[in-house]
Design a protein around this nucleic acid. Sequence first.
DNA 1: TTGAGTTGCGTGTATATACACACATTATGT
DNA 2: ACATAATGTGTGTATATACACGCAACTCAA
Lengths: 131, 131
Amino acid sequence: MSRCYCALLRKATRRVTSLYDDALQPIGINLAQFSLLRHIERDEPISMTELGRKIELERSTVSRNVKVLEGMGLVETGSGKDQREAVVELTENGRRILEDGAPLWQGAQDRIEARLGTDAAAQLKELLQTL
Amino acid sequence: MSRCYCALLRKATRRVTSLYDDALQPIGINLAQFSLLRHIERDEPISMTELGRKIELERSTVSRNVKVLEGMGLVETGSGKDQREAVVELTENGRRILEDGAPLWQGAQDRIEARLGTDAAAQLKELLQTL
DNA sequence: TTGAGTTGCGTGTATATACACACATTATGT
DNA sequence: ACATAATGTGTGTATATACACGCAACTCAA
């Protein structure tokens, strides 16, 4: 039986996630959280459902992950004009964490590019976006 | 800020995992479980630690995931000659599930190759293995 | 032979992920 | 105006993942 694309993806993702999580360790959040903060910053204030749609993550997962960030004081939630909606935005602390984390994240990006080479890294991006 | 390799990997992994899980739905297990059964079949009987080492998964994760498979009657565990060791092997049912799942899994592999093209699929494999 | 060090494992804790479900609010059709 | 349908959210449940820890069994050096 040939190699499983999905198993290879999952293994690679575990490895790379670990690399980014380690890089972000000094600011006390992991890559999933950092990434979520970045998306919130880009479109704030934004609703849970809209956030989930943008990043292709189940709404209940978004809700749960945002709650963790709220517990850390990095975001706050309130109501939209549509009372059903919970909207999220960054706190001052959240903004600071993003700023502090940017060079650490870039270091991880650089490490990936060093490992693959620039061309292969660009290729990987394209392939992942095709999947 | 450029696209995050890790975020792209995670998103692609969610998508592809969903595709394989759907494909395996008829046999009632997901890709992670199917993959674990395949690795057990390859080297059974095998210890938890050895299994974790082979698939680069934290030992406690392996322990937990094997327990779920045991609950489903797909594997059984016993002691090695080293009493510290728990060794795992497939049950008759587990073997059957693997056999029934093989064409379904192949169907998912084919779909990925159809989506990417054969060359690009080979390239993805190589890139993922470099990471 | 014995004590220290190492190894294998399972549990506690926590985050990440997804599906099902229920409830409240909004939208729509008649 | 009202009933139905759709939408947004959070909770329950479950699996997946990883780190820390404690315990039992094994190894090794003195």
